[in-house]
């Protein structure tokens, strides 16, 4: 029996990390932010009512799925603090990197690059690194977003910042799907531990 593996079963089951399907509602929220910030946004009923309702419904659907499928854990205060710190530091890095980029490239940036997408990618990498450790798929997905943000593709004028949220939304969903796969594989590995299904008469 491996003590570390069993301990990681509890400690490594964070609420907002490996439960990757949460990436779906968060990705939807990011896409809504992008749509809202377009100079000519879609009909208000979509971004103001139906979109948020679908996002909230997806969030509760995912929460229900994980509760039924994998159960529920209340983490130690130290671990809860770590996730909160990861989110705050990640967001601070995003804001800081975005502002730094705009200070160098102009407001709005004169170059056809997206400081929003680049800064968000860096913030996400910092978040994952602090929250539970970077995995290969996080690096691949968010470095891809970072590189794409710095390529001279962003020639949408006033909509440049708004459009940046669409690749961010897609990356959030894809990273979440990989996180979920990792969660499933992790739980599958517990089956091999085989503690025997005797009735505990010992």
């Amino acid at each position: 029996m491996d003590r570390r593996q069993l301990e990681s079963a509890g400690a490594g089951y964070p609420h907002a990390y490996l439960q990757g399907f949460y990436g779906i509602p968060f990705g939807m929220a990011m896409a809504l932010v992008g749509l809202t910030n377009l100079t000519d946004p879609p009909v208000l009923v979509w971004i103001g009512i139906i979109g948020p309702l679908l996002t909230v419904a997806a969030f509760f659907g995912v929460a229900r799925y994980y509760r039924h499928r994998f159960g529920k854990v209340v983490h130690m205060r130290s671990r809860q603090t770590r996730y909160l710190a990861a989110a705050l530091v990640g967001f601070a890095v995003y804001v800081g990197a975005d502002q730094l980029g705009r200070a160098v490239l102009g407001r709005p940036p004169l170059e056809p690059v997206s400081t929003t997408a680049a800064a968000w990618a860096v913030g996400m990498l910092v978040f994952y690194a602090i929250a539970a450790g970077l995995r290969a798929h996080h690096v691949v997905i968010w470095v891809t977003v970072f590189v794409a943000a710095l390529l001279p593709l962003w020639t949408m004028g006033a909509d440049k910042d708004a459009v940046a949220y669409f690749p961010i939304a897609a990356a959030t969903v894809v990273a979440g799907l990989f996180d979920h796969r990792r969660l499933v594989l992790t739980f599958r590995s517990y089956r091999d531990l085989d503690f025997g299904n005797n009735h505990g008469d010992a």
């Binding site: 301990e7 079963a9 509890g10 089951y13 499928r69 159960g71 854990v73 209340v74 983490h75």
Partner: peptide, 13 residues
């Protein structure tokens, strides 16, 4: 051992 790494866990977990 699983419980030692968390505050509490439910039956399903």
């Amino acid at each position: 051992t699983v419980l030692s790494s968390v505050e509490s866990a439910d039956f399903v977990f």
